[in-house]
């Protein structure tokens, strides 16, 4: 079943224009594998993206897709989930899209806790525009726009998500697609907003943080004895102490999602409800606002 579903996703996907070796290939493949393992066929899934290399995620996943504006994948994804709770909704983008222009939406999506999964392909650089400093580039990072090194400190997405009250925070690495697929499976199953920040190397423009560099520097939480992913304070401390260089599920907590908190939110998806009203009622309603 799972193998057939992976094939189904691939059959619906478009041919890729990403650079050979791009970490985003592994992200798409891991998501196809995770969705197939959860027995979610392409027609029950929608991927929403913004702009950037990783904005092509929805074209290559092979499910329903919505390519929104730059930094706007999250509001669209939340709206889709609220209108049709039967869909599995995945928002995806890069570090520029999500933590630059889209940072406001990110923080509010975290605290709002709509049941969607947000995958950020974090390569610490703007790849589509051929290599400029991004919001997650480290201080001192040399690019075309920062020839003397980046003067700013990077955004720390994991701490932001933890501080915002996220119920599921994880980090993956494109170089380990097996672990990534497992993280994705758990994130999709989580009821509420889930963040997966994926270190997804840009092989073309980021020559410092290569696959090899990440392999040597990332601590695998699956191999950390005694790490408790249900302790938010410990998660915070661990992320801070390791400067964010972790991979695995960092924090998880069962919480009521946004829809469950809404009084009167119907059990049935909005799109399945009969929203038609008699003309007379509509006229009365309109008059009340005039």
């Amino acid at each position: 079943m799972a193998v057939n579903l992976v094939t189904e996703y691939k059959e619906h996907a478009q041919s890729s224009t990403w650079c050979p070796g791009c970490g985003d290939f592994a992200v798409v493949a891991a998501m196809q594998k995770a969705l197939a393992a959860l027995e979610l066929p392409p027609h029950q899934v929608v991927a929403v993206t913004g702009i950037g290399c990783s904005g092509k995620f929805n074209y290559y996943l092979g499910a329903n897709g919505f390519n929104s504006l730059h930094g706007r994948s999250l509001p669209v994804a939340q709206a889709i989930k609220i209108a049709n709770r039967d869909l599995t909704v995945i928002a995806a983008g890069g570090d520029g899209d999500g933590y630059g222009i889209g940072i406001g939406h990110f923080l509010h999506a975290v605290r709002r806790n709509v049941d969607i999964t947000y995958v950020v392909m974090d390569n610490h650089i703007y790849g589509l525009t051929t290599g400029q400093t991004s919001p997650t580039s480290k201080k001192g990072f040399v690019t075309k726009t920062t020839p003397y090194g980046a003067a700013e400190y990077p955004i720390r997405p994991l701490e932001l998500a933890l501080a915002g009250g996220a119920g599921f925070v994880a980090q993956g690495f494109s170089g380990d697609p097996k672990q990534l697929a497992e993280i994705m499976k758990q994130a999709v199953q989580h009821k509420g907003f889930s963040l997966i920040n994926v270190y997804s190397p840009c092989v073309t423009f980021n020559h410092e943080e290569t696959y090899e560099w990440w392999r040597q520097n990332l601590v695998n939480l699956d191999q950390e004895q005694g790490y408790d992913a249900t302790d938010r304070t410990a998660a915070f401390r661990y992320v801070y102490e390791h400067n964010g260089l972790l991979r695995g599920v960092i924090f998880r907590e069962e919480r009521r999602d946004y829809q469950s908190e809404l009084p009167g939110y119907a059990a049935e998806a909005l799109v399945r409800q009969d929203l038609s009203q008699p003309v007379k009622d509509r006229a009365e309603l309109l008059a009340a606002f005039m």
Binding site: P20, G21, G23, F25, A26, S174, G175, D176, P177, Y211
Partner: peptide, 11 residues
Amino acid sequence: TNHDPNVFPVQ
């Protein structure tokens, strides 16, 4: 062609 199938990329 002798690459670990659980590692990406094949390079």
